[in-house]
């Protein structure tokens, strides 16, 4: 079992979710994060005072998958989140030991 984390551009969230649904991913968690990377931030100006904001709003996705699905899910995210411009984000893959569905207590593959 793997946990796949993806940091993507916020406006791509729906595209990625729909693409993942098509390949059978039934659940994911998303939240707003701030990223600092190659993509430049922006400047805000208030009454002449200038502020540089380096952190760029991003959405982080977390998806649990069976080992054999991991590469397909990574590819799906890659294709649906890509714009070709700096700031498209990154995908990380982590090992996971167990998953438990709270409602039923099912574990492992059955709980994904």
């Amino acid at each position: 079992m793997k946990k796949i984390e993806a940091i993507i551009k916020p406006f791509k969230l729906d595209d990625v979710k729909n693409a993942l649904s098509k390949v059978g991913v039934q659940g994911l968690t998303a939240y707003e994060v701030k990223g600092f990377g190659r993509q430049k931030g922006h400047t805000e100006v208030y009454r002449g005072a200038e502020y540089r904001v380096d952190f760029v709003p991003k959405v982080k996705l977390e998806i649990m998958v069976d080992d054999d699905l991991a590469s397909q899910v990574v590819d799906t995210i890659l294709n649906s989140a890509r714009t070709g411009k700096i700031g498209d984000g990154k995908i990380f893959v982590f090992p996971a030991e167990d998953v438990i569905r709270i409602r039923t207590g099912e574990r492992g593959k059955d709980a994904i």
Binding site: K34, G41, H42, T43, E44, V45, R47, G48, A49, E50, Y51, R52, V53, D54, F55
Partner: peptide
């Protein structure tokens, strides 16, 4: 998150246009 760092209070400097790209 970050509120951003202060850069300058001089909005009227000739350099200020460089920050207009977002």
């Amino acid at each position: 998150g970050s509120a951003g760092e202060f850069v300058t209070a001089n909005a009227f400097s000739t350099q200020s246009s460089e920050v207009l790209s977002v």
